[in-house]
Structure formats: C-alpha cells, structure tokens
Design a protein around this nucleic acid. Structure first.
Lengths: 138, 138
DNA sequence: CTGTATCCCACTCGATACTG
DNA sequence: CAGTATCGAGTGGGATACAG
C-alpha cells in the first residue's frame, strides 16, 4: 500500500459511469429496491400482500413500480384467473442478480444509521427513527 | 437447491428494510453515487476537476451533493489557503466502504443496458445512449 | 382483489447571475 | 477558483375516487 490514491488500476471509469447512471436511473425512487428486497426475501407475493409488506406504499405507487420492474425483467407478473382475479409477483432469476447488491446496501444502511445517530447524538438528540441521513438544514 | 423460494433463512428483513431506506435516501438523486465513484477511482480532486469528471453536473448541484456527502462522512473537504483558495475533495475511509457496492452497481448497470437494448431492439430500435431502463410510455 | 384516473403539492434539478 | 442566490420547469409521489 504505497500512498497514491489516484488512478488505481482496473478502475478506468471512462464510459463505465454510464453503467452507474443506468443502474441508478432504474433503481431510483422510494420503493423499487424495497420491493425487490421483499420479493427476494419473501418469495412470490400477491399484490395486496406486497402492499402490506412494503410499508407505506400506495396501490398507485406499487402498481407503477411493479410495471417498471416487470418491463426491466426483474419481476414476473402472473395473473391467476380465479374468482376475483389474483396476481402473483415474483423475482426473476435475472432480478436475483441484484439481490446481493440490495442486501449489501441494506447492511450498509443499518451501519450508517448507527454511525450518523451516534455522531449526531453528541450534538442534538434525535427521537430515533425516520429521516436520518444528515441533511444540510438550509 | 430445493425449489422453495419463500422465507429463505437468515433473511428476515423485519426492521432491516429501514437500512435499505436509509441507504437509498442518502444515495438518492442523479449525482451522489457518480461523485463517489469518481472520488473512489480517481482520488483527491479539486472542485472544478470534479465538475469536469462528473459529466453534466452544475456547480450548484455539485456543491449541494458534496455537502450532503461530507455531512454523512463519506467525503472529506479540505481548504487550501492558496492564492485564490483551492479546495480538495476526497473519499474518506468510511466512504470507501461503499466502493464495492458502487462498483457492483456499475457493472450491473452495464450488463443491464446490454440486456434491455437487445430485448428492445427486436421491437423498436433506439438510437443508443441515454434514457435506457425500459419505461412505461404512458 | 387489482388495479386506473385525477388532482395537486413539494421537491429536484437546471439555468443564470452574482460574490469573496 | 469555489462557491451562493434566485427563479422556474418538470416530476415524484400521496390522497382520493372509480372500475373490471
């Protein structure tokens, strides 16, 4: 480990940043990664079940987000022509390729909450939960 | 590998989803992960250098995003009292804990672009670049 | 049950002009 | 050079009502 931080090898982000843009564009928003996480962890779910597990999401949002995920082949939608129709959503094998990343993000986020909480508690004390992620108060 | 997808062990996302929320809340937006990626790959950078490397970002946005990243201890800001002041930004050791995830996202995004492009080309042909990530056209 | 259609506000982000 | 201030368009996402 010399010292040099610059230009470490095998990391020419030239043109690669597009990958990051694409991934973030797709995963942007409050809900998509959560939906993916739930489907990864809990398996196949019906619409209403999903809405219960993804805390706080509205039907409108759940619909929209699922459509995007399906269009991007991360989620498979299956309609069962039962009495009143029921619909199953499940993660696709391709969607599973995001599982690791999502789980790492989850763990990182948990650690980050602890870190920011304890760093912030020394100054002002927050009532646990909620906003987190230090923000410039403008 | 049986078949069962449901409730695979060690993945009780109960309460853990908060981690995902926190992480996504922090990383939300067009620019933050890109800035992180650049600082990880290219090392310490001055403000204007960063603005050049993060293609398309405005000074206003770069400032704001860097402030958030600094508040969250992912980036360190150093002012050098030179002739006209110069400022150095660099990723912190803590910020480095995101490097793996960011790089994985980058790779995944590159693969996703290929996948969606070829899937979509069969239908309508796009002029490469740009929007990507299949979207319901409303 | 599984959505869709509207309405609407808050916020994100870009453009532009200005400052120490 | 490294920002800050202001304005404005566009969008994300909640609430509500309705539909197959």
């Amino acid at each position: 480990m010399k010292a040099a931080v610059n230009r470490h090898p095998g990391c020419d982000y030239k043109g690669k940043t597009r990958g990051l843009n694409d991934a973030m564009e797709l995963l942007q928003g409050k809900w998509k990664v959560l939906i993916i996480a739930v489907l990864c962890c809990r398996g196949r779910k019906r619409f209403t079940e999903l809405q219960q597990e993804v805390e706080g999401i509205s039907a409108r949002m759940l619909t929209r987000e699922l459509q995007v995920l399906e269009l991007n082949q991360l989620v498979q939608r299956t309609v069962c022509s039962t009495k009143p129709v029921t619909v199953q959503y499940e993660i696709t094998p391709y969607g599973k390729t995001l599982e690791q990343i999502v789980m790492q993000l989850m763990d990182w986020g948990l650690g980050h909450r602890r870190r920011i909480m304890s760093a912030t508690l020394s100054v002002s004390s927050l009532p646990d939960s909620s906003p987190l992620c230090a923000q410039p108060d403008n």
